[in-house]
């Protein structure tokens, strides 16, 4: 059974189809990457899955449950985590608080308006563990807005992780990162894949080819190829539409 499935997924902005009849299936426990030139509809596809956009038509099912049309908060509660291409943090709050808020979103105590914030030890302990996992323990008390770009990218993923997602959607996790940071992120994503199914958008081909189980190539809203990295690299249409343009 597929963890996530899209059926004839279609999204129009005005008369422009940014996602055009996309049929995809994602199996549990694998790493999928979505590649394609700018404007191919990669982020829109992620937005449709995460509930940030509602499809014009078509269906998305997660664990055989229809999720298209749900709000992003509902999709999140079902177990789909999302990190963003541009940093999307709580800037004036501490690193710890950024993560703690995400952990708390699963906890019944989130409706409590009369206890101290420290009342739920399990929430705080888990937040600490995640801050540690993303390697930001030394900056735990620092406001998110003062982190370096690389650390912000890590926190971005940490927030998504803190919601315990079965499926993790990442929009260009390495965007703007220096090469050595990128290598580190690569190792991190590999580690995450042990616990989460991952779908990520990426522009850096070496990353895509080295860690993906499956690559999905999009162009002008359509999926033009799916397959293993090697198969996709050999596909003539992909070479014409995308890879050919680069090398």
């Amino acid at each position: 059974m597929a963890l996530l499935k899209t059926t004839k997924l279609l999204k129009y902005f005005g008369s422009l189809a940014c996602v055009y009849y996309v049929d995809l299936e994602f199996e549990e426990g694998r790493i999928y990457s979505i590649i394609g030139p700018n404007g191919a509809g990669k982020t829109s596809l992620l937005n449709l899955i995460s509930g940030h956009l509602a499809p014009s038509s078509g269906e998305i099912t997660f664990r055989d449950r229809k999720i298209d049309g749900l709000e992003s908060s509902q999709v999140s509660q079902l177990g789909i985590g999302r990190s963003f291409q541009l940093n999307n943090l709580f800037p004036a709050l501490s690193v710890f608080e950024n993560v703690r808020l995400a952990v708390q979103s699963r906890h019944p105590g989130r409706y409590n308006f009369f206890s101290n914030i420290g009342a739920y030890r399990e929430v705080n302990e888990k937040a600490d563990a995640i801050v540690d996992k993303i390697g930001l323990s030394p900056s735990s008390a620092k406001q998110a807005q003062y982190l370096s770009h690389g650390d912000k990218r890590l926190l971005e993923i940490g927030i998504a992780l803190a919601t315990d997602p079965a499926l993790l959607l990442m929009d260009e996790p390495t965007s703007g990162m220096a090469p050595e940071e990128t290598v580190m992120m690569l190792g991190f994503i590999r580690k995450l894949a042990l616990e989460h199914t991952i779908i990520f958008i990426e522009h850096k081909m070496n990353i895509v080819m080295s860690i993906s189980d499956q690559v999905i190539v999009m162009n002008q809203g359509r999926v033009i190829a799916t397959g293993t990295p090697a198969a996709v690299q050999a596909d003539p249409e992909v070479r014409r539409a995308y890879l050919g343009g680069i090398d």
């Binding site: 995460s50 940030h52 709000e71 992003s72 908060s73 509902q74 999140s76 509660q77 999302r82 963003f84 999307n88 943090l89 709580f90 800037p91 004036a92 709050l93 808020l101 995400a102 979103s105 699963r106 989130r110 927030i159 998504a160 803190a162 919601t163």
Partner: peptide, 15 residues
């Protein structure tokens, strides 16, 4: 969290 970034608060599951 809503004051800081409503969009992200929604994305981590807060209505």
């Amino acid at each position: 969290a809503i004051r800081e970034n409503e969009n992200r608060a929604e994305s981590v599951g807060y209505k």
